[in-house]
Amino acid sequence: MTADEPPMIEVTDLVKNYGPVPALRGVSLGVAKGEVVVLIGPSGCGKSTLLRCLHLLEEPTSGTIRVGAQQLSFGGKAMALAGRKLAAYRARIGMVFQHFELFPHMTALQNVMEGPVTVKRMDRRTAAELGRGLLVKVGLAGKEESYPAQLSGGQAQRVAIARALAMSPEVMLFDEVTSALDPELVGEVLSVMRQLAEDGTTMIVVTHEMAFAHDIADHVLFMDGGAVAEHGPADDVLVRPGNPRTRAFLSRFHHATALRSAG
C-alpha cells in the first residue's frame, strides 16, 4: 500500500434516510487495498447501515461509492444498479452477517461452493477443491458434509466466512459477526479474521470487541448519530481518543471489560 495510490474504496457524503429518519448523515471514508478499517460506535449509530449501503442491500439516499474503477452515484430517479449489474457488483464484495445465514438445506461444503458454482459458473470439481481449501483455512477440515444445524455458532460463522471468501471478493465486510455467539466461541471466529487481516485481505469490520479492533485495525472510525465523529490510526482513536464522545463510549466499554474480568 503506497500513500499516493488512490484508495480502493471511496465513499463520499453518503446519506441514508429511512423515511424522515436519517441513518447516515453524509459519511465519507476511503479504504486502501489490504487495509483493515474498523467501525465502532453505539448501537444505532449507523455503522451497520453503512456496511449494508456499501453492499447495496440498502439503496443509499444520496452520495457516491467507488469500488475499484466502478463509480456509483445515488439520489437519481433510478436505482444506481439493478438486476444483473447489481448482482455482479455484490459478487465483488463479501459480506458476513451477525446471524451467519448459512443455507440450511446445504452442507458446509455446498454452502461454500454455492457462489462459485451458481454465480461464477465454476465447474463443480474446481469449486469443491476451492471449498475444501477454504474450510481448511477457517479450521473446519472434516466438517465438509455437516449441515448448518449440526454446527456450533462459531463453526457456522467460520463457514459463512469461507462462503464469502469463495467469491474472491475485493473487500470483506463483517457486520458484528461475533455478537450472536456464546462468549467461548468468539475467539475462534476472531482468530480466523486476524489471519485474514495478516494475509492482506481488505476488510471493513463492525465490531464491539475493542481489544480485537485495536489488534487488527489499520484505521478506526468512531461513528455517532449517523456521522463519523472521529477517525484515525487505531492507537489514536482507541487509546488516545480526542473526541469526548469517543472517550465516553470507550470508557463504558473499559468499564464493562473490567467488570467481566473481575467476575
Partner: peptide
C-alpha cells in the same frame, strides 16, 4: 436473512 445471504454472494433474483 436468507435472501440477503443469497444476494451477498451475487445471485440474481432467479438464481
Amino acid at each position: 436473512g436468507q435472501w440477503q445471504a443469497g444476494r451477498a454472494v451475487g445471485m440474481t433474483y432467479a438464481q
